[in-house]
Simulated scan of single mutants.
Amino acid sequence: MTDATEGFPLDAPMSGSFLPAAAPRESTSHMIAEALRAAIVDGTLAPGAPLRQDAIARHFSVSAIPVREALRQLESEGWARAAVHKGASVAPLSANEAREIYEIRSALESLALGLAIPHHTATTLREAADLCRAAEREEDPSRYVARNAAFHMCLYAPAGRPQLKDMIELLHRRGERYLRLKFGLPSYKGESDTEHAALLDAVERRDIATAQSLVVAHLLGTGELLHRFLTERAREEAALAHQPKPRGRRPRVTTGS
């Protein structure tokens, strides 16, 4: 935290203006939303952290208007929550939300995959294979999240369903924080890479039923794993909060003879 941002917890205050002076307002609000989203994903802005409009506006050297629009966008996507008389804050992580995101993704992505497979070409399959290998080699969590989304969306692109694509991309964005959590769980990376390879193989063989079954199992499994992890963590945190605090040692009282 820095005095320059009055507690706005980004890594460091920015020197000069973050945005071009002549940037259109819509572009400005989008860029601010992207920066805040990235800070939430990497943990710089923790769940429950306040998102003060004045501090954010000073940090990005902009007026309050694009900040309000950015916060409204983040709230609509589930990244932020607004309370009357309290302002906006980073939305808490929720076991139920994590599971629901992946349940919905499993339905939509299974549909998209079934529509896309008949229209894949040698070129689109080669692109998907390249993205699959790139994700397998990636060790940085932030870049892996991006490569994971790119691989999935590449599989669905030939479906030619723009509204379905938009809905899936929104769920990917809402699930980014949760996917980062899964990165810290044992054996996740290897399991995910193996599941991606099997999914790609089914798509290359034009086996729609198998591909749909694999993507559903992959996504539902992720949702259930995250639900268990977050539920157990919440239980542990609640138990710690209810533990009695250790009392300090009482000072010895001495009396004169």
Results as ranks from 00 to 15, higher is better:
164 L>K: 02
153 M>A: 11
211 A>H: 02
150 A>K: 06
175 G>K: 00
106 S>P: 01
168 I>P: 05
209 A>W: 03
177 R>G: 06
115 L>D: 05
128 A>I: 03
85 H>E: 15
101 I>P: 00
173 R>T: 07
108 L>A: 06
177 R>H: 07
191 E>L: 12
201 D>A: 14
186 P>A: 10
153 M>R: 09
136 E>T: 14
143 R>W: 10
192 S>W: 10
166 D>C: 03
178 Y>K: 00
180 R>E: 00
84 V>E: 15
108 L>H: 05
94 S>Q: 01
121 T>G: 05
197 A>I: 14
117 I>M: 11
161 R>P: 09
129 A>F: 06
212 Q>P: 03
158 P>Q: 04
119 H>Q: 08
93 L>P: 02
139 E>M: 08
208 I>H: 08
154 C>Y: 02
113 L>A: 07
96 N>C: 10
131 L>V: 07
117 I>L: 10
204 E>T: 15
191 E>F: 13
184 G>P: 01
145 V>L: 12
134 A>V: 07
202 A>W: 07
139 E>V: 10
205 R>E: 15
123 T>G: 14
121 T>K: 03
216 V>F: 11
139 E>A: 12
144 Y>I: 00
98 A>E: 02
215 V>Y: 06
176 E>L: 05
124 T>N: 01
149 A>S: 11
102 Y>T: 05
106 S>A: 13
125 L>C: 04
156 Y>H: 13
161 R>A: 15
211 A>P: 00
193 D>Y: 06
138 E>W: 03
91 A>T: 03
160 G>I: 03
102 Y>N: 09
174 R>V: 01
148 N>R: 09
115 L>Q: 08
137 R>N: 14
145 V>H: 06
176 E>I: 01
125 L>P: 01
214 L>E: 09
162 P>K: 00
191 E>H: 10
147 R>T: 08
